[in-house]
Design a protein around this nucleic acid. Sequence first.
DNA 1: ACAATGACTGAAT
DNA 2: AATTCAGCCATTG
Length: 116
Amino acid sequence: MKTTQPLEQDFFESVYQVVRLIPRGRVSSYGAIARYLGASRSSRMVGWAMNNSHRVTPPVPAQRVVNRNGMLTGRMHFSDPDEMQRLLEAEGIEVKNHSVLHWQKLFWDPSKELAL
DNA sequence: ACAATGACTGAAT
DNA sequence: AATTCAGCCATTG
């Protein structure tokens, strides 16, 4: 089923591009990405886009996208609940109690980093 | 067509 | 400071 029309596809693709731009060892939030795309109020749609990200090519590092609190809210959407945390730790990001440590320090905001 | 849900966020209590 | 409410918008029942 399509579930995505051309216009929405472009939005999804834009989200994927931004996520792929997140440097290794860094993390970002749904709101930050949504805001960068001009849809600051559609943070939920970013999350929905990530839900579809598993079927997109090239693969999207969805593990680097967490909520504003640095919590791995989407970990259960991975192949395994611990997959997300494992991927983050593999990049040198410390995860404790399903949350990113040094979150504020590792936070990567596209509106600030890219629009600089 | 209406109601409920969701990988969110910010404001209000 | 912690919990609850409301806005937001696409997808699903």
